[in-house]
Structure formats: C-alpha cells, structure tokens
C-alpha cells in the first residue's frame, strides 16, 4: 500500500449510517469481551484480499471480519449465523424493517 501508485484523493465525506455505527460498536465491544482484537480484525481484512477492497465498503469489510472473528472465537457457529441471517431476511425488505 505505502508508496504504491494511486490516483487523486477523493474528499467527499458522508455521515455514518446507524448500521455502520453498530458495526463499529460491535468491534469495540467484542474486543472488550476478549473475543477479538485489533490485530485479528486486521488479519481477516487483509486475508479478504484486493478484490474485497475494491468491491466492498469500509464497514462491509469490517462486519465480514468481525463475523469471521466471532466464529473463530466460538461465540457462535456458522450454522447459527446462517439460521439467524435467514430469519433476519424474512422480517422485511429494508434495514428499518429487519432490525
């Protein structure tokens, strides 16, 4: 990354959506609970590779990493996560409906 060719810096700024703030909070709280740490967050982000950097937003990558960390730490299983995601999806078509 450091020193690699790169284009102009985009100065656009956005306010964080509630779901993004929640992802941030989950990382902080899961770390306080001893389930992950900053290095384990970063390790999964790095392992997601270049394509994820191009195609996913910042907090999309973060929730993917937090989720992976929780499975590794035994906080829940991939099967439990899949069941829960199916339930969430069935609640409605917008974030407001599903949360």
């Amino acid at each position: 990354m450091g020193g690699d060719p790169a284009g102009n810096i985009n100065h656009d700024q956005h306010d964080f959506a509630l779901w993004e703030k929640r992802v941030d909070a989950l990382m902080v709280l899961a770390s306080s609970a001893g389930l992950m740490n900053t290095d384990s967050l970063r390790r999964v982000l790095e392992d997601m590779g270049e394509e994820a950097y191009e195609t996913m937003s910042y907090y999309e990558r973060w929730i993917a990493s937090v989720s992976q960390n929780m499975v590794e730490a035994g906080a829940f299983s991939t099967a439990e996560l899949a069941d829960k995601m199916a339930q969430v999806k069935a609640r409605g078509t917008t974030y407001g409906d599903a949360t």
Binding site: N37, T38, D39, S40, R42, E72
Partner: peptide
C-alpha cells in the same frame, strides 16, 4: 506491546 503476529491469530 503484544506481538501482533500472535495476537492476530488469538
């Protein structure tokens, strides 16, 4: 500080 090379893998 904690060695990140171990910390990253818990």
């Amino acid at each position: 500080f904690n060695n990140p090379e171990q910390n990253a893998y818990r």
